[in-house]
Design a protein around this nucleic acid. Structure first.
Lengths: 252, 252
DNA sequence: CGTACGTTTGATCTTTCTCAATAATGGTGG
DNA sequence: CCACCATTATTGAGAAAGATCAAACGTACG
């Protein structure tokens, strides 16, 4: 293959492969997609509710989140995205977006135009399947969040969110040692769990007091993965990761 | 075309077409899928968490719901399905199901084997796109439910659920006059909204007392669609229906 | 070094849950 | 058709989780 200096879409390929195997040709088809790099500040939008999605951003650096607002202006965050995630598949085939995607931190995305991406997805069965699986896993995460918010108490909810984040970061190779920086304010954490920031604060202090986690600023360290998993009622099945179904080794 | 006495998959075709246009050939490809009819009792499962999904059930008669359980056994319902809905696309491409799909009432489904369905979806760009859109709309509904449960108070939550149900039934031509039978117990309503059945009961009485709805058993009649829409903070955008974006005419 | 933003704390209030009992309903077998 | 049983709906009283309000404290960054 021609010597290329690290195609940023490698990141997308790697993500797709965590869910479904791709052949060399499939990989190249993905890597061959046109894209444009774009740097984004914290709070920058990649997609707004009501917009027509005409491109799909792949998150290369930084963190992003998905949210929508009630008529009264209350915000609910429905997903957190880490580098490697495709941000806009959820809207790609729709006429207008039904929610917002915004950066949590500053970061970098590769924007793939809608047309060639759609053609690839619909034309290449293997890539199509991988994207389909990726999309279905995202939907599965939405369901787990609904369960989390609807049926767990505040302590479990927060613990669950911390577990998911730890797990996904580790799966993506971004948290080698079970310590990570939670890239969100407590207010955002509240909007992700259906709580208030005041209460989130107290719950975090509670988890710390119980000796389950250690915190410094936004750094979080799991003292015991097992206990956090139990408190958060966390079962990674819903993430459908091909590799480690068990708790990430480094977190054990 | 050969005279067939109403292929049950017509129902699926009609559903797909509410989201994306199909050509005659596409329609025939869908109608040509093999299927087996199965009658199901209330509470019967079409899919259980952990199972390998090897078929996709299309709901022909009756109502179904999607749910999962916490480790403590609390249940969260994440979707209600009405006739015409495909119940198992959400798991079709996955190795194991991450949630349960169960009948709300007795009913009838057409089960399509996984293999030919996957081949059609991946091989026919038009059908692939329609299924993709259908799946994305389901995901959009999951997100709206997360918002509903995370950020609306009990009154709005219930009203929102009632609005969505009314809207979808009408869109599917199943509620000609703004009156419909809610095929759920108050306990199920509670599990769908993250509340308790006792509280659901009081909220329903409240809505009735306010003159927003009338009830008899499980029959619900909207006295004023507009007021219910406001109370429920209901905006149908998230349903991405091609036809009426406005409130269903019969509900106005 | 000051300002804006995020975190922490305390006091109080509200919504929703819990528990427990009673009343309807619907379906079933005789 | 009726009596009976299981489910579902309704009511009341009290408890609790989490929200709200308001203020003080930290900290990062321009």
């Amino acid at each position: 293959m021609d010597r290329v200096e690290q195609n940023p879409l490698e990141s997308l390929v790697r993500k797709l492969e965590t869910h479904h195997a791709l052949t060399k040709e499939d990989r190249n088809a993905v890597l061959g997609l046109p894209y444009k790099l774009r740097r984004l500040e914290a709070q920058g939008y990649t997609l707004r509710e009501g917009d027509r999605p005409d491109k799909c951003a792949v998150l290369l650096q930084g963190f992003a989140f998905r949210h929508k607002l009630t008529g009264e202006g209350a915000r609910q965050i429905m997903a957190i995205h880490i580098p490697g995630d495709a941000l806009d598949f959820q809207n790609m085939f729709l006429k207008e977006s039904d929610h917002n995607v915004q950066m949590l931190t500053r970061g970098l995305v590769a924007e793939i135009p809608r047309q060639p991406l759609e053609e690839l997805v619909l034309g290449n069965a293997n890539v199509g399947r991988a994207i389909m699986v990726f999309t279905l896993v995202e939907a599965s995460i939405f369901r787990e969040w609904t369960l989390n918010i609807g049926r767990r108490d505040s302590r479990s909810r927060i613990a669950h969110l911390l577990c998911e984040f730890a797990y996904r970061l580790t799966a993506q190779g971004l948290s080698p040692d079970g310590v990570y920086e939670l890239p969100m304010t407590q207010e955002q954490l509240a909007d992700a769990t259906g709580l208030t920031s005041v209460h989130v604060n107290r719950v975090l202090q509670g988890l710390q007091r119980e000796g389950l986690i250690e915190r410094d600023r936004r750094m979080v360290r799991f003292v015991s993965w097992d206990r956090m998993r139990d408190v958060g009622d966390f079962n990674a099945r819903y993430l459908h990761t091909r590799e480690f179904r068990a708790p990430p080794p480094s977190l054990t």
